[in-house]
């Protein structure tokens, strides 16, 4: 955790060395120029130019956080899919004990705040450091991925359950009729239809996970929001500027993912698809 953080700080420092350093750099901006500039630009520029300058100087530091945010999101969605899809299938096609177990775990995960799930996994379950050969994932990061991923699995299972359930029973029968086994009928006939229908729900889930990565703040992970918090505790006048800046990044992320998934949805839509 500390390594990338200090790297980014070092980068920020070198930037600072290129540009006039903090104290000296602010003087010309704030004293003379800003007085006249702010009068003309005040009405649209929220905050203080000097503080925006502070944000820009630390863009690399925030960039490190952004990488972690994106990494957490992708890993959690993947974990959520790997666990959630089978779970959804069990809820539709399973019976007895397994189905009840999956349902109960789902209710618990969906009924508990993500911050509590993260704390339980971090402090109670205690995820170890994971070594990947090329590098290691700290316990906090694995706890973050596990927490966000499992919670997402609980929601994704509902998306897939609904999607699988919405495929007409006749499809399964038709599969059996051409000689496929029950499993094959599900695999080759029902699942491809269900996956397409789950795109809108999946899109929603994606942005929820992305936004909720900010809550790993609770276990001290230096993702985007945490780094923003660190920055504005350093320079308290820049609070608004920092948060608006990172909010802007989140917005761009959610907006582009949504549009990308929209595109995916139309691209893979079945012609004359279901009317809604």
């Amino acid at each position: 955790m500390s390594a990338p953080g200090s790297l980014a700080l070092a980068a920020a420092d070198s930037l600072g060395a290129l540009a006039p350093s903090t104290a000296a750099g602010e003087t010309p901006l704030t004293a003379a120029t800003v007085g006249s500039v702010s009068e003309s630009i005040d009405w649209w520029l929220v905050g203080d130019p000097a503080d925006w300058w502070f944000v820009l100087r630390n863009v690399d530091y925030l960039g490190g956080g952004l990488l972690l945010t994106v990494g957490l999101t992708v890993a959690s969605i993947l974990l959520g899919f790997l666990v959630g899809f089978p779970a959804g299938a069990v809820e539709v096609y399973g019976d007895g004990r397994w189905k009840r177990l999956v349902e109960t775990v789902g209710v618990v995960l969906r009924g508990t705040p993500i911050v509590v799930i993260l704390l339980v996994i971090y402090f109670v379950v205690g995820v170890p450091q994971v070594n990947l050969g090329i590098g290691s994932i700290s316990p906090a990061v694995s706890a973050g991925i596990a927490g966000l991923g499992l919670r997402s699995a609980a929601y994704q299972s509902q998306i897939f359950r609904a999607a699988l359930g919405s495929v007409d029973d006749g499809q399964l029968e038709a599969g059996r009729a051409v000689g496929l086994s029950r499993f094959e009928s599900i695999r080759y006939v029902v699942v491809p239809q269900a996956l397409r229908r789950s795109i809108p729900g999946f899109q929603n889930e994606f942005t929820i996970v992305l936004k909720d990565t900010s809550i790993v703040f609770a276990i001290g992970l230096a993702e985007l929001l945490t780094r923003g918090y660190d920055l504005f505790t350093q320079q308290t006048t820049a609070v608004l500027e920092v948060i608006l800046f990172i909010s802007g990044i989140y917005f761009v992320l959610t907006f582009t993912t949504n549009r990308a998934l929209d595109y995916l949805g139309t691209r893979y839509a079945i012609p004359e698809g279901e009317s809604t």
């Binding site: 909720d212 990565t213 809550i215 929001l225 918090y229 609070v239 608004l240 989140y250 959610t254 907006f255």
Partner: peptide, 19 residues
Amino acid sequence: ELLRGTPLLAQLFVLYYGL
């Protein structure tokens, strides 16, 4: 779009720390 596109925690920070 704006409120749904940004994290709730960031919004709380804007109100509490920022403003």
